[in-house]
């Protein structure tokens, strides 16, 4: 590593390259998913400020969709927090796999904790692919540019869509609400690590509406735990066979 590569201009350059990586197909798809989320949050009765606040503080889209789902269902704080926590556990292994790639000998701990807030599916996928070609001491700068810009762009998308959603014709409006389900149906299937996750998704799709009719207050938790448990049992049984 040359001395110039470690200097402040070097960091700025990599920060800007990270920011530029947002303007890509994955970045565009994520923005379209946030268009759908803004419509969803508005329909759930959230205000513009609350929706923007939620976008910036929670960031992970599945967690926000679950949180808004809990608000729509009228769930209490504990049930909502538990459901969101279950949907966000998957972030831990993602962070665990990304942080060692980002850490250089002189990286400070608080920088990693700060940057970890940006970790969600899209930035994780982009970074895991890009890091190979980035000098190690520049990776935190790159990821800061990437994550920070993704959050900023999508906070803007959410705010704009929230304001104009009221004036949209019913056809466009209906299309807007279908964006979130379509995005997750496809991205959940594509990001599955093992067949068991595909089973979990199909069982969860069936159990969600079923439990909504039987136990509306606990439908999400019940569907997640039952569907996940069944898929895991299937995973163990299948592996048990020769």
């Amino acid at each position: 590593m040359s001395a110039a590569g470690r200097s402040a201009p070097g960091r700025l350059r990599w920060f800007l390259r990270g920011a530029a990586a947002c303007f890509s197909i994955p970045g565009l798809i994520l923005a379209s998913a946030f268009v759908g989320f803004a419509g969803l949050a508005r329909e759930a009765g959230l205000t513009l400020a609350q929706t923007v606040f939620m976008t910036a503080t929670v960031w992970a889209l599945p967690a926000k969709v679950v949180l808004v789902g809990a608000v729509i269902a009228g769930n209490g704080l504990l049930a909502a927090a538990f459901a969101v926590a279950l949907s966000s556990v998957r972030l831990t292994p993602m962070v665990v796999s990304l942080v060692p790639e980002m850490r250089a000998p002189r990286t400070r701990g608080w920088v990693l904790y700060l940057l970890s807030h940006f970790i969600a599916v899209t930035s994780w996928v982009i970074a895991m692919r890009a890091f190979r070609d980035i000098p190690r001491p520049m990776r935190t700068a790159y990821y800061g540019g990437l994550g920070g810009t993704l959050v900023a762009i999508n906070v803007g998308v959410v705010a704009i869509v929230f304001v104009i959603a009221e004036r949209l014709p019913p056809l466009v409006s209906a299309g807007l609400f279908l964006l979130t389900p379509l995005y997750f149906l496809t991205s959940l299937w594509g990001s599955a690590r093992e067949r068991a996750s595909h089973v979990a998704m199909l069982v969860g799709l069936a159990l969600g509406p079923l439990f909504h009719l039987i136990v509306p207050d606990l439908a999400l938790l019940a569907a997640g735990l039952t569907g996940g448990g069944l898929a895991y049992a299937w995973h163990r049984m299948r592996r048990g066979r020769p």
């Binding site: 279950l86 068991a196 979990a200 909504h212 996940g228 895991y232």
Partner: peptide, 20 residues
């Protein structure tokens, strides 16, 4: 694996309810 299965089923349940 168990953690990923539960998280996936939970999000799938939310998605199905948004449609149904």
């Amino acid at each position: 694996v168990l953690v990923r299965c539960i998280a996936t089923a939970l999000v799938a349940a939310v998605i199905a309810n948004l449609v149904v």
